[in-house]
Simulated scan of single mutants.
Amino acid sequence: MRPDLRIEPVPFDHPDAVALRAAQRAELTARYGTPDSEPGPAPTAADTTVFLLARDAGGDAVGCGALRALGGGVGEVKRMYVVPARRRTGVAGVVLAALEAEAGRRGWTVLKLETGTEQPDAMAFYERHGYRRIPNFGHYAASELSVCYERALVPDAMNAAAIPLPWSRLGRPARRSPGAGPAAGHAHGPRKAGPALPAGGSAELA
């Protein structure tokens, strides 16, 4: 648990959520070289099940993540992002743990996600956290730059991780080591290889 972080659900159009998504989109553009094209529909307020913010001890929003229901007990992790100054400090792991716990509360049994070939940092992060690579699914099936993952959720583990609302502090169990996480979430973003970001500019953008 990180005592300096607080996880809270907010509306999709909350100003801090909008600002983090805009920063994420800018990084995707820098990483892939195109401003718009996505291999699948971008999440909206209508189809986002929950949007979580991570706040530091001063109340600043330092990360985010969202869930979108795919049906049949399956959900998709979306819009994972951590501000550059807080990368490699475990924030991404805390956000992912919170999303997994929320999925467990909803009775979901599988989480899927999509990232991109230009984001090896994101792929390594998800693999460290128990996600396995799968064939590209849904809207990403024909995307040559998409890389997809999934993880089966274990009900007992999810129940143990769950913290009732109102949200306060949530950390990943000690067996999960913090690391350089999705600095910017899954790459449902530009799908054209472009210039790499500067060293340390992790851009796991969703």
Score class of each variant (00 low, 15 high):
Ala92Leu: 12
Val74Glu: 05
Leu52Cys: 11
Val82Arg: 01
Leu96Gln: 15
Arg106His: 10
Leu113Gln: 01
Thr117Glu: 09
Ala45Arg: 02
Ala98Val: 02
Met123Arg: 13
Arg25Gln: 14
Lys78Gly: 01
Ala66Val: 02
Thr115Glu: 12
Gly33Trp: 07
Glu27Ser: 06
Arg79Leu: 00
Leu28Trp: 01
Gly75Ala: 14
Ala122Trp: 09
Pro41Glu: 15
Ala54Pro: 04
Ala92Pro: 05
Pro84Ser: 07
Ala103Asp: 12
Ala66Met: 05
Ala97Trp: 14
Phe12His: 00
Ala45Tyr: 01
Glu76Val: 03
Gly93Cys: 15
Thr49Leu: 10
Asp16Ile: 00
Ala69Trp: 08
Ala22Val: 07
Thr29Glu: 06
Gln24Val: 03
Arg79Pro: 00
Val18Lys: 00
Asp47Tyr: 12
Gly104Ala: 11
Gly59Ala: 11
Ala22Asn: 11
Ala85Glu: 05
Thr48Pro: 08
Arg25Glu: 13
Val95Glu: 03
Tyr32Glu: 13
Val94Glu: 13
Gln119Ala: 15
Glu114Tyr: 10
Phe51Leu: 01
Val95Gly: 02
Gln24Asn: 11
Trp108His: 13
Gly33Cys: 10
Cys64Gln: 04
Gln119Asn: 15
Pro35His: 10
Glu76Met: 04
Ala22Pro: 08
Leu20Ser: 07
Glu114Ile: 10
Ala122Arg: 07
Arg87Pro: 08
Val74Cys: 04
Ala19Thr: 01
Gly65Ser: 13
Ala45Glu: 02
His14Asn: 04
Thr115Met: 08
Gly107Arg: 14
Thr89Asp: 11
Cys64Val: 01
Phe12Cys: 00
Arg31Lys: 13
Met123His: 12
Ala46Leu: 03
Gly71Thr: 11
Ala97Lys: 12
Val77Met: 05
Ala69Val: 09
Phe12Gly: 00
Lys112Ala: 04
Gly72Arg: 15
Leu70Ile: 14
Pro35Met: 07
Ala42Ser: 07
Arg87Cys: 05
Ala54Thr: 03
Val50Thr: 08
Val110Tyr: 14
Gln24Lys: 10
Gly90Arg: 09
Lys112Ser: 03
Gln119Ser: 15
Ala122Ile: 09
Leu20Asn: 03
Phe12Ser: 00
Ala45Ser: 06
Asp121Thr: 05
Ser37Glu: 07
Glu27Arg: 04
Val110Ala: 14
Tyr81Ile: 03
Glu38Tyr: 06
Pro43Asn: 03
Thr117Lys: 08
Glu114Asp: 09
Phe12Ile: 00
Tyr81Asp: 07
Thr34Tyr: 04
Leu96Arg: 15
Ser37Val: 07
Arg79Asn: 00
Ala26Trp: 01
Ala22Gly: 12
Gly58Lys: 08
Val77Gln: 06
Ala26His: 02
Ala122Pro: 11
Thr34Leu: 02
Gln24Arg: 07
Ala54Phe: 05
Gln24Gly: 09
Thr49Lys: 06
Tyr81Thr: 04
Ala101Thr: 12
Tyr32Gln: 05
Arg25Val: 11
Arg79Gln: 01
Leu70Phe: 11
Gly93Asp: 13
Ala85Ser: 13
Asp36Ser: 13
Gln119Thr: 14
Asp36Tyr: 11
Arg68Pro: 02
